[in-house]
């Protein structure tokens, strides 16, 4: 919890000093605007996705298809509204339905067919965009349904409505994992799947559930993302978002090997990532280039968390202190 907050504070300090206008807040039409509000609003989708991703990573897996699921949900909603002429409720239900289906698909492949998570979700990551193209017939669908637009642009208590969605999902997620034993089971399965199965935990169901929930979160994020720009573009909604989400979760301290997970920390991590993104945009770094520095950050963070890297550092350090210490090959030093 401490490190991501510190990093966030440092980044904000940097922006305060060097990025002009980053800290300006305006009250327009009774609502707040400004870079920091942008971070919250744009960050909503990263926060939503990383909430789901936290659970998947805690089971020891990963979901590479989150961006694609966002695109699927966005295009399905837009299509239902514009092409098929359904109402808002039907559009949202349809979008979330397809997102749940996508999550269930991943979940079944990983939990019941034992396909490695990377491969299973990679299939949907790539093939899913093809499906989204089919749904939108290769077109960018613009919409102006008031409720749909409100999702990503509306305000609630002067703050973007998206934050309300995030809060709602977070509370739901927290209740589902921490007020039931699902959270304990997820951590157990992620930490040691065989032992958990032997202890009677329904490892498959738990894993399935994690992917299902991630699908739902991605679907919501997709609705928010397409609502933001009042259109659905199957090629671009959620592009590269899987990296942001994984990054947010890892920065938040949930290990990629699975086990303990921290929902709040993932939210902080997501805010950190979004601040990074917004800072880059504010400093005129294009959206296309932005993934590059982020990739460096995620590798750096993982290096810091990697036990091997730490041990190298420690060894360096201790060797300076006492040169007499014998060299131990780190990977094999197990009795």
């Amino acid at each position: 919890m401490f490190w991501p907050l510190l990093a966030l504070a440092l980044l904000l300090l940097f922006d305060y000093l060097f990025t002009p206008g980053f800290f300006r807040l305006e009250l327009r039409g009774g609502n707040l605007y400004g870079s920091r509000i942008d971070v919250l609003n744009q960050g909503a989708r990263v926060m939503l996705v990383s909430l789901g991703m936290t659970l998947v990573i805690a089971t020891g897996g990963v979901d590479l298809s989150v961006g694609t699921v966002m695109a699927l949900a966005g295009t399905v909603a837009a299509r239902l509204l514009v092409v098929d002429g359904y109402g808002f409720i039907a559009a949202v239900s349809g979008a979330l339905g397809i997102a749940l289906l996508a999550g269930a698909w991943n979940g079944v492949l990983v939990a019941y067919f034992n396909i490695q998570p990377i491969i299973a979700t990679l299939i949907l990551m790539v093939a899913g965009r093809g499906v989204a193209q089919l749904v939108s017939d290769g077109q960018i669908i613009n919409f102006n349904d008031a409720s749909m637009v409100f999702l990503g642009n509306g305000h609630f208590f002067r703050l973007p409505f998206t934050l309300t969605i995030v809060l709602f999902v977070f509370v739901g997620m927290w209740a589902l994992t921490r007020q039931t034993a699902v959270g304990l089971f997820i951590e157990a399965v992620g930490d040691n799947p065989v032992a958990s199965r032997y202890a009677g935990v329904n490892a498959r169901l738990v894993t399935f559930l994690a992917y299902l929930l991630t699908g739902l979160c991605s679907g919501l994020a997709g609705l928010v993302a397409s609502s933001n720009i009042k259109s659905a573009d199957a090629n671009h909604i959620g592009l590269y978002l899987e990296l942001d989400a994984i990054l947010a979760v890892v920065v938040g301290g949930t290990a990629l090997t699975g086990g303990r997970f921290y929902l709040v920390n993932s939210l902080v991590g997501a805010l950190l990532i979004q601040t990074l993104t917004t800072t880059m945009y504010a400093r005129n770094i294009s959206a296309d280039i932005a993934p590059m520095p982020k990739a460096l950050v995620i590798i750096a963070v993982c290096l810091l968390q990697s036990e091997k890297a730490r041990r190298y550092l420690n060894q360096r350090f201790t060797r300076h202190q006492s040169a007499a210490l014998p060299a131990i090959t780190p990977s094999r030093a197990q009795p």
């Binding site: 296309d288 280039i289 990739a295 590798i299 990697s306 036990e307 091997k308 890297a309």
Partner: peptide, 21 residues
């Protein structure tokens, strides 16, 4: 550093994509 291959190469994927632009 015993980092998972998917993570490193996912990083590589985004890094090179950004670098291309």
């Amino acid at each position: 550093f015993a980092l998972p291959a998917f993570l490193v190469t996912l990083g590589g994927m985004f890094f090179l994509r950004g670098l291309s632009f």
